[in-house]
Each structure stands twice: as structure tokens, then as C-alpha cells.
Simulated scan of single mutants.
Amino acid sequence: MLDNHIQTGRRKNAIARVLIKMHKNEVNNGKIIINGQSAEKYLQYNPIYINKIYLPFEIINYDISTSNVIVKVKGGGISGQADAIKLGIARILCEINNDYKPLLKQYHLLTRDSRIKERRKYGLKKARKAPQYSKR
């Protein structure tokens, strides 16, 4: 039985399209591939980012060896991309089994972090930084 699930995750300027391919056979499974590279290599072997993307699986004790995760991600930096991937994976797991939803919600994995960089306003150097005030 072949079963595919697709979801999108976003964080800052990063957008991740996550696909989980479910397979019966145990050959060549349990991998997370991001933009054609292994997750560890793409996330520069940083344990913080690697643990972020595996967190939804660990919370619900999901056996990742039964499926492959393929991710296409663009925009933002590595930190935002890791959070976007985490959200996409959590959404897919809810799609696979709705019983996971309360547990994932309890750990705030289904909440989209809407904080983005504030735009620059005219007359200012950055979003809020003003030129130095001169009295005379």
C-alpha cells in the first residue's frame, strides 16, 4: 500500500512543502531528505535544528522507519526553515491520525509562529531606529 501526504509549513520567510511517503517494505526507509540532501547535511549537522525536525515524531512515538519524508524548502535562513519543516511534519501527522492532534497541540507544534521581520519605514534607518536627534 502506497500512501502519500502533503502539507505546508511556514516560519518567517521560509516555506516548506513536506511529503511523507508511507511504504510497507522496510527497505531504504526512515530517511528525511531536504532539497535532495540528507537532513543532517542540509541542516549543517547542527543538533538543535536536527532535533527540531524530529520532535513531532518523538512526541507521538511515531516509527519513522515505515515512511520517507521528502521536503522542498525555500526562503529564509536555516533556523526558519527548520521550524517550517517541523510545522509541516506536525500537520501531516495530524492528517495521518487525528488522535495525535491534542498531543501535538499541547506542545504547540501545530501553531504557526507568525512573527516576521517588521518593514522599514521612510524617514527611519531601520524599522524603528531613527536618525539621531539634534536640538541645534
Rank of each mutant, 00 (worst) to 15 (best):
G77F: 05
N97A: 03
V27W: 02
Y54T: 07
I92K: 01
Q106T: 09
A90L: 08
Q7A: 15
I96R: 01
K41D: 12
I6V: 15
L103D: 07
K21Q: 10
I89H: 06
D99N: 14
A39V: 15
T66K: 14
I48P: 00
A82Y: 04
G36S: 09
I15V: 15
S67L: 06
A39P: 15
Y45L: 08
D113C: 11
N4W: 00
I34A: 02
K52V: 10
I6C: 05
A16N: 03
K31F: 15
S67V: 13
E26G: 06
P47K: 14
E118M: 08
I70S: 03
I116K: 15
D63H: 11
N28P: 04
K31P: 03
T8H: 06
Y62L: 08
V18E: 03
N25L: 11
I15R: 08
N29S: 14
T111H: 09
K74V: 08
T8W: 00
N98I: 12
I116Q: 13
R11M: 02
N61L: 02
I96T: 03
L109C: 10
N29Y: 02
G77S: 06
N51D: 15
E58N: 14
L87K: 06
G80L: 07
N28L: 11
M22P: 01
N98Y: 03
Y45D: 07
H108W: 00
P56C: 06
R119L: 13
D113P: 10
T111N: 11
I32M: 10
G80E: 05
R17L: 10
L104C: 09
Y49Q: 04
R10E: 12
G75P: 08
I96M: 08
I78G: 02
Y107D: 11
E95S: 14
I48A: 09
